[in-house]
Design a protein around this nucleic acid. Structure first.
Length: 446
RNA sequence: GCCGCUGUAGCUCAGCAGGUCAGAGCAUCCGGCUGUUAACCGGACGGUCAUCGGUUCGAAUCCGAUCAGCGGCGCCA
């Protein structure tokens, strides 16, 4: 295929600049055809780039005959280069249009499979194409801001970013949610087909790495084979985790609060346009205020029971309970002191051994849990006891127990579900809308 | 693991007390139109009704199985 001559990259103008009325004289924009309408002598071609979309008018009398034919023929998503004069015109969507003096098609698109009639399934099957949509682009820009804000916040607090392996043989969440990876050719030779699990969390590795660096964080995918078909679950999700030596639970909670506020403020500074595209009520985000409410598990039990639930000590909060707690909140809420059954690595409260020195952070508006964290068991003997208590084998945690034998210290950490956080900030009705290629129980393509 | 739902043209759907039931809109293609706003007007193209089996004189329609997908619960971030 022969491509037209290209102007230099720097010779192009971003569509957002044209829409802002910042351009004098002729401009050249490039992008993809978003909508097209034509009559015998005039074609309206709406072009989008990553910054916005603008209508160009291609008149038969102003361009060559072949350019006009191309403009009429080119289907949606064809890539094009348009040269012309910006003009303020109320008849144009967005108030500005480009009166074309030249119209080049770089590549004629085939019939685009996504039209105005869209089903969930069709959009997921065509995710590789749907990523071009305004709403996906807006969500992904916000997602990028959240990633950056997370990194900036912890870096500024003198935490070091580190990486842990995705292949592991240690489980830190329930064993039933582990994905297994196999070594195919080994399987044929030796029958030893199992290689590793996919990591559910960096935590065990973080606790080891912490002894050198003290304050660390990571941003990585975690994998959980939960058979969860809900608007809040992915089998592969992006996990933002932090671990800190000498840190107490309440100190970590204060830092997390600062992190959430930094993330919200960053999105409010950089992504107002994207929030508007997504239809998010910006005042809801502006009204988020620290400090967040802190309540104990026991207090939540009482509160829920007074709302008509029937819960007793040890019961978990399901989505119904979380929703009842958070749907009228304006800011996130901490729940602390969960029952000791919640996890072997959380440290039981010395003053109240039936509960743990730990916390969850629940996002408002019914979005529910986005953070789980707490203080870790740091005494080697206590950790061995706790592993046994949960019905697990201390032998399978060899190296993890080993790190406690050489100058163990109190420490705390947490995990933040980045996708859940973005979903909440975007006001999305499903977590799949805020990640480019969602991985769920029944979908691994595209 | 459990509950519910869906599968008919490229897309969105209608048709389902079994018998003019192979349909519409959009998309695509052809023609028309100098201001359209996911335009409008005329025409054309397009389907083994998910697959397999059963009931029946007759199945898109009823029954069963399978496959694929969607929503939710439990659990979690």
């Amino acid at each position: 295929m022969a491509y037209p001559e290209f102007p230099n990259h720097d010779d192009f103008t971003a569509i957002s600049k044209v829409l802002a009325g910042e351009c004098e004289g002729e401009v050249t924009v490039r992008g993809w055809i978003y909508r097209t309408r034509s009559s015998g002598k005039l074609a309206f071609i709406v072009i989008r780039d990553s910054t916005g979309s603008i209508q160009s008018t291609v008149s038969k009398k102003n361009v060559t005959e072949s350019s006009f034919d191309d403009a009429r023929k080119a289907l949606i998503e064809s890539s094009v280069i348009v040269k012309g004069t910006p003009a303020k015109d109320d008849r144009a969507p967005g108030g500005w249009e480009i009166r074309a003096s030249d119209f080049k098609v770089v590549h004629f698109a085939e019939t685009f499979p996504i039209t105005k009639d869209q089903s969930d399934e069709h959009l997921l099957n065509n995710r590789h194409l749907w990523l071009r949509s305004q709403s996906m682009v807006a969500s992904l820009k916000i997602r990028s801001t959240v990633f950056k804000a997370f990194r900036d916040y912890w870096t500024e607090n003198e935490f070091t970013e580190i990486q842990s392996p995705s292949f592991t043989t240690s489980a830190c969440e329930g064993g039933s949610t582990l994905f297994n990876v196999y070594y195919d050719d080994e399987k044929e030779k030796t029958g030893q087909k199992f290689y590793a699990h996919l990591s559910q969390s960096w935590q065990l590795y973080a606790e080891a790495t912490m002894f050198g660096l003290e304050n660390i964080f990571t941003l990585a995918p975690s994998f959980r084979a939960e058979k969860s078909r809900t608007r809040r679950h992915l089998t592969e999700f992006w996990h933002a985790e932090v671990e800190s030596a000498w840190m107490h639970n309440h100190q970590m909670m204060e830092l997390e609060e600062g992190m959430i506020m930094h993330i919200i403020e960053s999105v409010l500074s950089f992504n107002r346009k994207e929030l508007e595209i997504l239809g998010r009520d910006i005042s809801v985000l502006e009204n988020i205020k620290a400090p967040f409410e802190r309540v104990t598990y026991e207090e939540v039990l009482d509160k829920l029971n007074s709302m008509g639930f029937d819960l007793s000590w040890g019961d978990d909060f399901g989505y119904k309970e979380e929703k009842a707690l958070t749907q009228d909140l304006t800011s996130p809420m901490y729940i602390t002191n969960f029952p000791r059954e919640k996890g072997f690595y959380h440290r039981p409260d010395p003053n109240d051994p039936k509960s743990l020195v730990c916390h969850d952070l629940l996002a408002p508006e019914g979005y529910g849990e986005i953070i789980g964290g707490g203080e870790r068991v740091w005494s080697p003997d206590e950790l061995t006891d706790r592993i046994r208590e949960e019905g697990l084998e201390p032998e399978s945690y060899g190296w993890y127990l080993d790190i406690r034998k050489f100058g163990s210290v109190p420490h705390s950490g947490f995990g933040l579900g980045i996708d859940r956080t973005v979903s909440w900030i975007c006001g999305s009705d499903h977590i799949k809308h805020v990640i480019p290629f969602p991985r769920t129980m029944r979908r691994t393509t595209p």
